[in-house]
């Protein structure tokens, strides 16, 4: 039982981590909460739905790749339209966050106004396909999502640590002005950043869609991945991974816990938001975040 809970938690946690990494990547360089990332994740899922179900009948892997690409490109355009002006003007990070909120609201409601509020299922790749280890029944899809998320995050880590662009992104997370003065074209760097974050988000969206359903508010501002990123400490990559997985585990634990006659699962969301508020109050930098003090 507990083993099964952990496996489920790890699987959903790794998808959260995949999304949380996108929030943290952007936050690390541009220092704001990119709420539009949730909308990009959602659009990634809808692209997969269009490719696999409604318009074309593509098979899974090409659809996954195209969804990632599509989500990456959407993220890139969101940056161009909603953030680049503010960036060039060196507006306070709050402005970027408000702009991101505007994008999130607009994109989600464009989906409501066009595709509608219906829930759509993505074809079950091997959801039904389960196997047992001891008492636990484990779906192949959970394992698959976990493995794929881990591979994606590992690839991202390699890019960040061993390529020129990756080094520049890490440098920019400390001092983007200095990076620019060393000759790095910040616009290009930020474009790469959003392509990376967007395509990881697209992948997460597809997995979410398969595991649950595809619907307009699946990536809404207050989604769990964002909370995971805050738990880990916004702007920290390991933080996002640990935070995402931790939240996944906690959630699946809470879902199966019954105290007296109260199923905690009813209050699962209150629980996540409660954690978010408490964490911000008592440790706003999360588990791995760094503290920046204002200079007088």
């Amino acid at each position: 039982m507990i083993f099964q809970t952990i496996i489920t938690g790890l699987s959903i946690g790794s998808i959260y981590a995949l999304m949380a990494v996108g929030y943290s990547l952007v936050f690390s360089v541009l220092n704001f909460s990119n709420f539009a990332h949730g909308a990009v994740i959602t659009l990634g899922a809808y692209i997969a739905w269009a490719l696999m179900v409604s318009v074309f009948k593509m098979s899974f892997f090409p659809a996954l790749l195209l969804s990632m690409l599509g989500a990456g490109i959407i993220a890139f355009f969101v940056e161009r339209i909603a953030y680049s002006t503010l960036r060039h003007r060196r507006a306070p990070s709050l402005f970027l966050m408000i702009s991101a909120m505007g994008v999130a609201i607009a994109l989600q409601n464009v989906l409501y106004a066009t595709v509608g509020a219906n829930l759509y299922a993505l074809p079950p790749i091997f959801t039904q396909d389960t196997f047992s280890i001891g008492a636990a029944t484990i779906s192949r899809m959970d394992i698959f999502a976990f493995v794929f998320s881990v591979i994606a995050i590992a690839l991202l880590t390699i890019v960040l640590n061993y390529t020129k662009v990756g080094t520049a992104i890490r440098a920019a997370s400390y001092d983007s002005e200095m990076v620019s003065v060393l000759g790095v074209n910040l616009d290009v760097l930020v474009a790469v950043l959003f392509l990376l974050a967007g395509s990881l988000g697209g992948m997460a969206g597809v997995f979410m869609g398969i595991k649950y359903m595809v619907y307009p508010s699946m990536g809404w501002i207050t989604n769990k991945a964002y909370i995971g990123a805050v738990i880990g400490g916004l702007g920290s990559l390991p933080g996002a991974i640990v935070g995402g997985i931790l939240l996944g585990l906690l959630e699946s634990l809470v879902s199966v816990t019954v105290i007296g006659s109260v199923h905690l699962s009813t209050f699962r969301d209150v629980f996540s938001f409660g954690i978010l508020v408490l964490l911000l109050v008592f440790r706003p930098t999360g588990l791995f975040g760094r503290h920046v003090e204002e200079k007088l």
Partner: peptide, 30 residues
């Protein structure tokens, strides 16, 4: 009181209020 006392960064404060707003809504729903 607690959130303002913690002197959060302006965007963290916004997120905390957002979490509070959602929590109240979910609470009312149940």
């Amino acid at each position: 009181y607690p959130t303002l006392r913690a002197k959060l960064r302006s965007d963290y404060f916004a997120i905390a209020t957002l979490g509070f707003g959602e929590a109240v809504k979910v609470l009312l729903e149940n």
